[in-house]
């Protein structure tokens, strides 16, 4: 029988081993305390999700800027104008500032920058890609009903009116737009086929569901075009009663009036004869002091 007899370590040896074991245990506990927050998989997952979301935010902002670029193109194209769902707050200088900021921040974050957006930033507006191309790129970056609406409008402006109408109808049918904007899509479909009365009704429905100043402006203009005097006056007064919006952005209010009058002129609609009509319209266009009601009275009296 082979028995291995281990020699008992000396007292010094035992003390040395004990001190090593204590040192290792101390180190282990300190390292656990220090490292625990940084190696937790949940902590890493949260940060990774936030980073992904930041990338998505960059993409969304770039898509929105492309959408606005398409709308800026459409604003210069009288063929693309509908009364309904008109963008009223587009400012090319502000847009350029926003693009510059986004490009700067996206590159600082080492995120991708869309080529169309970069092209629009670097080139003058006349050399931009067509509105349809920009709207398509925006739809790729930010798929959703708002991008679909802009794309449908660019198709309308490109002369594909039936296709635009069917696109508008599809958007309206899908019910994906909120706060009455689905009715705005239906109104745009009706207007693109020339049914202004149906467009007015849809805009009024959108207004009732809280679509805001866009639907109200569109309904106001359509009511004027259709000669619905009482309704136009009521809408004009409601638009003027939007005190917070007027106070917050008097220039925007003036821009709405200018836009409406500009569209009026581009459509070749002649105001009915009335004394001092021309001067009242000029006043409305040049300043926000004279309101929509004055314009409405002038045009419908």
């Amino acid at each position: 029988m082979n028995r291995r007899v281990e020699r008992r370590p000396s007292r010094e040896e035992l003390a040395r081993r004990r001190s090593w074991a204590r040192l290792v245990a101390d180190l282990e506990s300190h390292l656990t305390e220090v490292l625990c927050g940084f190696v937790s998989s949940q902590w890493l997952e949260l940060h990774a999700r936030c980073e992904d979301e930041l990338s998505q935010v960059h993409v969304t902002i770039q898509g929105r800027l492309l959408r606005q670029a398409a709308e800026l193109c459409l604003a210069r194209d009288s063929a693309g104008r509908l009364w309904t769902a008109a963008p009223v707050r587009l400012d090319a200088a502000a847009w350029r500032r926003a693009v510059l900021e986004e490009l700067h921040l996206a590159l600082a974050d080492r995120r991708r920058v869309d080529g169309h957006l970069l092209a629009c930033h670097l080139m003058p507006r006349d050399a931009w890609p067509p509105a349809e191309v920009l709207a398509r790129a925006a739809r790729r970056l930010v798929p959703g009903p708002t991008s679909d609406l802009v794309f449908a409008r660019t198709r309308f402006a490109a002369g594909h009116r039936r296709e635009a109408e069917s696109r508008y109808r599809a958007i309206a049918r899908s019910g994906r737009l909120l706060n009455g904007r689905v009715h705005e899509a239906a109104a745009a479909a009706a207007e693109s086929r020339g049914d202004l009365r149906a467009a007015l009704e849809q805009n009024l429905a959108a207004r009732a569901l809280g679509a805001g100043v866009r639907a109200e402006s569109a309904a106001f203009v359509l009511a004027c075009v259709l000669g619905e005097r009482g309704l136009a006056l009521q809408l004009a007064e409601e638009l003027e009663l939007r005190e917070p919006e007027r106070n917050a952005a008097p220039r925007d209010h003036a821009r709405i009036v200018r836009e409406l009058a500009g569209r009026w002129r581009s459509r070749g609609i002649t105001p009915r004869s009335a004394p001092e009509t021309a001067s009242i319209v000029t006043d409305c266009i040049c300043s926000a002091d004279r309101g929509l009601a004055d314009l409405c009275y002038a045009l419908l009296s």
């Binding site: 625990c36 927050g37 190696v39």
Partner: peptide
């Protein structure tokens, strides 16, 4: 060395 998850390491996201 096994690293035990610290109680406070869970993100307070949810």
């Amino acid at each position: 060395m096994p690293v035990r998850p610290h109680p406070s390491a869970t993100p307070d996201l949810p």
